[in-house]
């Protein structure tokens, strides 16, 4: 991610060079501090959870234990104590990934994880595109249904847009990856006007909806993958659904404790009994069968 702080540092650097020659700039930035060319400042917000799993090289369904082990292994290679100053950025990324993933996995372990089955499952609340620099109020979004795959936008702002050759449509890879002017040209160049400016808060939902979703199957019919026809409408519906769910969950959370305790001792006993029966039933059956067989054997 070519970032925002690097551009700033670089321009700063450039001025210095202009003013007082490169000798001075060597003095100002001795070798040791070469990494002060900080590459990206707001890494935290730009990444999706998937990126973090990639950073640590673990599967998305990894247990906290696996995440921890991967983190330690990688830190042992990249921590500045071992890899020297050049390990700084990598170690930062590892720390960040570890923190985010451990937070989310401990949340899951605590039973707060929201599992949404069927349509819309897998929504994490993060967008797919990353951010170059800090989050701004506006973001770019490509309506991939309308996109005809002309590559105009990729041509004009290659850092921002990327082409998905499988789907045959363009999408935003890095928000504000190019300077604003280039982005504007790219937006205007689209022959079908499928590049939209949207509010950053809508972005994660839109980007999520734009991806092909697993379709809810009914028996042998349906199933497979589909992408909503009208992304914007679908996103509106989806966020409404999310809101509703959240409201329900919070109201359930508020009196959830009582619900839990409402189970009487007798009920608990019954539940335990049922569970036991389920577990042992097959054995009982075998035993009974054996008995029958034996009985019939003696009869014979």
């Amino acid at each position: 991610m070519a970032g925002f702080f690097s551009t700033c540092a670089a321009s700063d650097h450039y001025c210095l060079q202009l003013r007082s020659g490169s000798a001075h700039h060597e003095l100002i930035r001795p070798n040791k501090y070469r990494r002060t060319m900080i590459r990206c400042c707001s890494t935290a917000k730009g990444k999706t959870r998937r990126d973090y799993y990639q950073v640590l090289g673990v599967a998305t369904h990894s247990t906290p234990q696996e995440i921890k082990e991967a983190y330690r292994k990688l830190q042992k290679q990249h921590h500045p104590d071992i890899a020297g100053d050049k390990g700084h950025d990598h170690a930062l990324l590892l720390n960040e990934a570890y923190e985010v993933l451990m937070r989310s996995s401990s949340r899951k372990a605590d039973g707060f994880g929201k599992s949404r089955g069927g349509f819309g499952s897998g929504y994490t609340g993060d967008g797919y595109s990353s951010w170059n620099g800090p989050i701004r109020s506006q973001a770019l979004f490509v309506d991939e249904n309308k996109c005809i795959g002309c590559r105009e936008c990729v041509h004009h702002a290659g850092e921002t847009f990327a082409m998905d050759d499988v789907l045959g449509s363009a999408h935003v890879e890095v928000q504000f990856g190019d300077v604003e002017q280039q982005i504007q040209v790219a937006v205007e160049s689209c022959p079908v006007n499928c590049i939209h400016w949207v509010g950053s808060e809508e972005l994660p939902v839109l980007e999520f909806m734009a991806r092909p979703q697993p379709k809810e199957g009914h028996g042998v019919f349906g199933g497979g993958w589909e992408r909503p026809k009208d992304v914007f409408a679908a996103a509106r519906n989806f966020s409404r659904k999310l809101e509703k769910q959240e409201r329900q969950e919070s109201s359930r959370g508020a009196n959830g404790g009582e619900d839990m305790e409402a189970e009487t001792a007798a009920q608990a006993e019954a539940r335990r009994h049922a569970g036991q029966e389920l577990r042992w039933k097959s054995l009982f059956d075998v035993w009974n069968g054996l008995g029958d067989w034996r009985k019939s054997g003696t009869d014979r």
Binding site: F5, I38, H79, P80, D81, G87, H88, P134
Partner: peptide, 18 residues
Amino acid sequence: CMDIDAGNVLRVFAGVVK
């Protein structure tokens, strides 16, 4: 933006972004 490296050196970066 605040940055602490492994040698515990603290650097502060600041500027206008919008």
